[in-house]
Lab assay of single mutants.
Amino acid sequence: HNLTITQGKLFFHYNPKLCLSEIHKMEEVSGTKGRQERNDIALKTNGDQASCENELLKFSYIRTSFDKILLRWEPYWPPDFRDLLGFMLFYKEAPYQNVTEFDGQDACGSNSWTVVDIDPPLRSNDPKSQNHPGWLMRGLKPWTQYAIFVKTLVTFSDERRTYGAKSDIIYVQTDATNPSVPLDPISVSNSSSQIILKWKPPSDPNGNITHYLVFWERQAEDSELFELDYCLKGLKLPSRTWSPPFESEDSQKHNQSEYEDSAGECCSCPKTDSQILKELEESSFRKTFEDYLHNVVFVPRKTSSGTGAEDPRPSRKRRSLGDVGNVTVAVPTVAAFPNTSSTSVPTSPEEHRPFEKVVNKESLVISGLRHFTGYRIELQACNQDTPEERCSVAAYVSARTMPEAKADDIVGPVTHEIFENNVVHLMWQEPKEPNGLIVLYEVSYRRYGDEELHLCVSRKHFALERGCRLRGLSPGNYSVRIRATSLAGNGSWTEPTYFYVTDYLDVPSNIA
């Protein structure tokens, strides 16, 4: 807008934040220059609390790290170098490059900038070799853009010569660093050979998330399962459950009422301010606690030095998902009996873990797994792929695949051998790939016309006998059925096997 004052003059007093240069501009645009008398524009009460600059400061050096910015700028000295009290560095987070010096300023003089007072450097006698002032900004957020400017702080001049310097606002972004852990990993099994893994992005990506790394490792069953005799009275049979499938998407929606109208769909109840505040506090606490764990609990591995020492970490090797089922080394339970199943799973520490690289999504279907087997899954978020990966501390989750139908069934015939004193040795093959492992066998036998009897055969007993022995049988026709019990439950009964026990007292003698 054009402003013209045809008559009258300007009068400025007691404006401590208004620089004289701005008042002189007002004289020019209003056409009143030359009308004012000496005392109409006070030299001592206008701009006496402001830094009124008329020179431009330029930054000469900028260096960044993930949490620091090192700045240096060209030296500046007023005509009387004693008038320079120091520099004021202003900075704040700036997602967009549209910041002005006066953003967030209120009537009390406060604003949204963080201000650092910096002492002037030592003055050199040689004007050509003056030290460049600077400042190291610490405690910054990774991968965050900051708006920065600097200006001088000078003393009051009796001659009211307006001098000083100020830089333009520059924008500097800190470097990326390792992201925080992925949030809320959930693993479920939808079949006997697959596990579905879902997660949420890290709360602090500290860069642009480029991919996720998912490692999985087959877990050995508890050692007590191999040692305890679950045929003993009072000892509860062990059981394991597989990871249940995901709930429906509708039930997972946030901010939804727990109660549904019987007449149909209901609208979600909005969260109160107290609920939102509580969630923010919980989120802040979780982030602080995660940072504490990362800094205190997890110790970084030592990389190899120039002395030739090897990095103890196993090298990563990509495998196809079809090879995942046989990740671990199978060892027989008892070496003397080769027909026992290889369900003991000690994992070799030198073995390469299978892994998958996930790009542009937060889910993965891990296939080719062994049925009813526990897996430990390790999830890392990465925001750099080359020249070397920059990934987060791992988040861990466990899951067990679903049982395989008929995996616990005894394959092959049940054979028998009759000894003296009416002892019958029953023999059968253990299931080759049971659900988890076989903890015991149930032997059901009966003599024709009598009630059915049951015998429990422990895992250890089966390994020693290759089956079991029935003792003290009365003469007669017998039928026997056997079924295995694994961590997933009972298998199917075998087809009945028949044998006849004679009275050993009636056996004919070869003595003449």
Rank of each mutant, 00 (worst) to 15 (best):
P354T: 10
L440E: 05
F246V: 06
Y448F: 13
S320E: 11
E388Y: 13
L277P: 03
V359D: 01
E356V: 13
T502W: 04
N208Q: 15
T340V: 06
L277K: 13
V397L: 14
Y498G: 12
K317H: 12
P354W: 08
N339Q: 09
G325D: 15
D311E: 15
S458F: 05
F372N: 05
Y498E: 13
A263C: 05
E290M: 11
Y498P: 03
P338N: 06
A405V: 10
K357N: 10
H211W: 09
S444V: 15
G234Q: 09
V365E: 05
P245L: 12
R376Q: 04
E362N: 07
P354R: 11
V296A: 13
A484T: 07
D222G: 09
D291Y: 15
A335N: 13
L470S: 00
R469P: 03
T303A: 08
S363Q: 15
F355T: 08
V214T: 05
T343H: 11
T497A: 09
G308L: 10
S509I: 15
A399S: 10
D323R: 11
S348W: 06
D503G: 05
D323Q: 15
K361N: 12
P245K: 07
G306Y: 07
T340D: 12
V345G: 05
V358F: 04
R286I: 06
S274H: 14
P244K: 07
R370K: 14
T497P: 00
E282T: 08
R469Y: 09
P349Y: 09
D204W: 14
S320H: 11
L369C: 11
F355N: 13
R286C: 10
H254M: 06
M427Y: 00
E221N: 04
L487S: 14
T288M: 11
S320V: 11
W242L: 12
S342C: 04
Y212A: 04
R390Q: 06
V397T: 04
N477H: 06
V324F: 09
I209E: 07
N339M: 07
F226T: 10
R471T: 08
R400Y: 07
S344Y: 07
S305G: 10
F499Y: 01
T373K: 06
K236P: 12
R286F: 11
V299A: 06
S344H: 12
V365H: 02
E420S: 03
E310G: 08
E417A: 13
D229F: 13
A463D: 14
S392A: 03
F215H: 10
F372R: 03
L280T: 14
W493T: 02
R319N: 09
D222M: 06
F289A: 04
N295M: 14
A405L: 04
K361S: 10
E452M: 05
N206F: 13
V439C: 05
K460M: 11
Y259I: 04
V424S: 01
G491S: 07
P270K: 08
K271Y: 05
P338D: 05
C269V: 08
P205H: 04
Y500L: 10
D273A: 14
T502L: 13
S444R: 07
E279R: 11
L237R: 13
S492R: 10
L455V: 12
K233Y: 12
E420N: 07
C231P: 03
Y259R: 10
S458P: 05
P238E: 03
F337K: 06
E265H: 08
H416W: 12
M402P: 06
E388I: 15
D204L: 08
G264N: 15
E417R: 13
P245G: 12
G234E: 10
T415K: 15
C231I: 02
C456W: 00
S474A: 10
Y500V: 13
F499R: 01
N208T: 10
I410M: 07
L213V: 13
E442M: 04
L470V: 14
A488V: 11
Y375S: 00
N255E: 07
R313M: 02
G472I: 09
E362V: 13
S367M: 07
H294R: 05
D506P: 14
F289S: 07
S486Y: 01
G264L: 14
H211G: 08
V331K: 06
H416S: 11
H461F: 13
D273Q: 12
P244C: 10
S479G: 02
P354C: 11
R466A: 07
C468E: 01
R286K: 13
N360H: 07
K278W: 08
H425D: 04
G374I: 09
E404P: 02
F289M: 08
T494Q: 02
R466S: 13
V507H: 01
I377W: 03
V414S: 01
